[in-house]
Nucleic acid binder design. Structure first.
Lengths: 217, 217
DNA sequence: ACCTGAACACCGTTCAAGT
DNA sequence: ACCTGAACACCGTTCAAGT
């Protein structure tokens, strides 16, 4: 309309988040974001050094909204679990950002809120202070890896997903019993990676936390 | 030289694997592969439906070479751990393929060998047969997630990595003690996600396996 | 029967030129 | 001081035309 317009960084991030939520697959691009804002992609480079920097900023907003209204409840294991599930859900709606977060971190207020809550929960666990950082490190690696890999599957188009399922079926059900006896034996009960992710997430995390607890004095 | 030349699928996969090993960052492309083969990218589409299909085939070769010379040793936990570490190492040298594997699977002989060995190990564990598939599923999800996310960090250029480290330092060391007391307290001992990955991998997996063992009759 | 060239519809990023 | 247009150097993929 006006031909010229100054966009605030906030508006850009909002629009980017919106686009990442609605767009299917990996179709987000700087050019599309610019088009949605009604401007040229070149003008966005005044606000962000590059695309990664932009996505990191959006990822940090995801963390912020994930922490919105959060109140710690229960013992340390429940707190860690609730936190992890919140992050999982938040990135589940914006799967492209999960990969950015796991690779680059986000480095803003959102990430600080997450780190703070996780550390506070561990501090109430009875762990000696000097063991907290190492336990923290393992938990973050585990949670980030699970979320990012689940999100990676979430970015597949339904055609890609179906195709992968089909090839999985062929690999499992078509295995020669002579060379792959165990695989043939369990073939009908083996499930592909993409199913039952929420239960898997909770179980794997619970095992990790139980293990930490078991090693306490 | 000859102007015309038929490439076998084998040769294409070999060259692709080579290129993925040596190329830094995400710079692999169909066009570069074609150039390395001395042909045009369009001719590769007779051998593969698309880029993903090509990468899946290379990923399956990685699994094959990872299993090369493998002999089961020790109890079931040692077998699972050895297998997982082999995969981790194989994809560590070709980090771009880890993401493809975790998202799409590979669906060839390599993946069958891995599935077979993992199932056989679980079968010797003393788990009742009907619990094996669920335990198998969790282990694969965990191992694939850890390997892919570690590899994701491995695809960063050293500039990107340094930049991420710097921003991590700022986020942690620059946190206001009033709003982030636990973070400030542990600031100097909190480590970024990318460090100490091998130890983290082994510990997290060990916790998972110990948890399975603890639930046995 | 096989391969090539050229094209299509995109990317991220830069930078001189405009207002 | 800010924005735009145009360009650069790439992508994956398709398909008519060549040999």
């Amino acid at each position: 309309m006006t031909g010229r317009r100054r966009w605030s960084t906030e508006e850009i991030l909002d629009t980017a988040a919106e686009l990442l939520r609605t767009s299917d697959a990996d179709s987000f691009s700087v050019r599309k974001l610019a088009a949605a804002l009604g401007t040229d992609s070149s003008s966005l480079y005044r606000h962000f050094r590059n695309k990664t920097e932009l996505l990191r900023a959006v990822a940090d907003r995801i963390l912020l909204t994930a922490m919105d209204g959060y109140r710690p409840e229960g013992d340390w294991k429940q707190r860690v679990t609730t936190l992890a599930l919140r992050l999982r859900e938040a990135f589940g709606e914006q799967p492209q950002l999960a990969g950015v977060w796991a690779r680059f971190g986000s480095g803003g207020t959102g990430s600080r809120l997450v780190m703070e809550e996780l550390l506070q929960a561990l501090r109430t666990s009875g762990l000696p202070d000097e063991e907290v950082p190492a336990r923290y490190h393992r938990i973050v690696i585990l949670v980030a890896a699970l979320i990012a890999s689940e999100a990676g599957i979430g970015t597949l188009t339904s055609k890609e997903y179906e195709q992968g399922m089909e090839q999985f079926r062929v690999a499992v059900l078509g295995a020669d019993p002579e060379h792959f006896p165990a695989l043939s034996h369990f073939a009908r009960d083996i499930r592909p990676l993409g199913v039952d992710r929420r239960a898997a997430f909770e179980e794997i995390l619970a095992a990790q936390l139980a293990h930490i607890e078991a090693q306490m004095p």
